[in-house]
């Protein structure tokens, strides 16, 4: 207080001091770099990297549970190979039915992690910090969406790889086994991309509607469970009641539709619990449509959101 007033007698003057801070004169990356950075950061966040151990528990346990059976099969592949060679009938987990059997674990993955991706920014009102940077609202939403989709794709593809390795190891001639198994396994890639995109878009679109993680999670699980159960129930009743176009309702189910679409990628016939009136390709179309619709909802939400 006292130091500055020493020269108070002289005329008013002011100066800005050079404290030695360096200015950034280099190239500035644009919005794509900003969006890419958010994507990478967000992807790490889904898996809890860069966060405390407790944040890693949920994603790793749930993804681990999903892969568990594939790794179990891999671990016991030598025993299984012996049983197969001795002529026993062994029921193996297959590429084309794995998601149908264990997909509900990935619902839990979404319920646990999707709110983590989008709720905190709203709760702590930091969105404006993102939107005043090089990145736009749509970039933000799409980067977040891409990160969750990538995380889901990783969770989906890991057990496929485990199954593939197991299947190859069970065969006596490894090189030719790869040649036989690879074409069988490859459809898993487009199928898993579709599954990941669909589940991620549904989860983020719904999660973004509440800043509180608890409500987001409840809303999400309610959506997944009810949209599985209700259309199927109505279809069953309506069929008996003679409403023929009720079969389209099944296209609204998130997981059943994805299973149907997976069957199309693997060229497998649909199971008996699917309406006979719809082909497997219909489910692929329905799933792609759902990705589009929910991504649009997400973008719409972020365009309107006060930040």
């Amino acid at each position: 207080m006292s130091a500055g007033n020493r020269l108070s007698a002289s005329s008013p003057s002011g100066s800005i001091f050079d404290l030695g801070y360096r200015h950034y004169a280099g190239k500035r990356h644009g919005r794509w770099y900003a969006a890419w950075s958010l994507y990478v950061e967000s992807l790490r966040g889904v898996w809890g990297f860069g966060r405390p151990m407790s944040a890693k528990a949920a994603p790793f346990i749930l993804a681990g549970l999903y892969s568990f059976f594939a790794f179990l099969q891999l671990a016991f592949s030598s025993t299984l190979a012996n049983e197969i060679s001795s002529g026993q009938q062994v029921q193996l987990f297959a590429y084309d039915s794995y998601f149908t059997q264990f997909g509900f674990l990935l619902i839990l993955f979404c319920v646990a992690q999707a709110p983590e991706v989008v709720c905190r920014d709203q709760r702590y009102q930091v969105l404006s910090l993102y939107f005043t940077r090089a990145m736009g609202r749509a970039d933000y939403a799409l980067a977040r969406l891409a990160s969750l989709a990538t995380a889901l794709f990783l969770a989906l593809i890991v057990p496929m790889i485990a199954l593939f390795v197991g299947d190859v190891l069970m065969k006596p001639d490894t090189i030719s086994a790869i040649g036989v198994e690879l074409p069988k396994a490859l459809p898993a890639i487009p199928a898993d991309i579709l599954i990941a995109a669909s589940m991620a878009s549904i989860s983020l679109a719904l999660s973004s509607y509440s800043p509180r993680r608890a409500y987001s999670a409840i809303g999400l699980i309610a959506y997944f469970l009810l949209m599985e159960a209700v259309p199927a129930i109505i279809y069953a009743v309506a069929q008996q009641g003679g409403w023929t176009s009720a079969d389209k309702l099944v296209l609204l189910t998130p997981i059943t539709s994805l299973s149907g679409a997976t069957d199309w990628f693997f060229g497998k016939a649909l199971g008996a619990d699917y309406p006979a009136t719809l082909g497997a390709d219909t489910y692929v179309v329905a799933c792609i449509a759902s990705v589009a619709v929910f991504s649009a909802i997400l973008l719409f939400r972020y365009r309107r959101m006060a930040a």
Binding site: A57, L62, L108, A112, A214, A217, I218
Partner: peptide, 8 residues
């Protein structure tokens, strides 16, 4: 994380 645990 009681909520997610409960749902699980």
């Amino acid at each position: 994380r009681a909520l997610v645990l409960g749902i699980g």
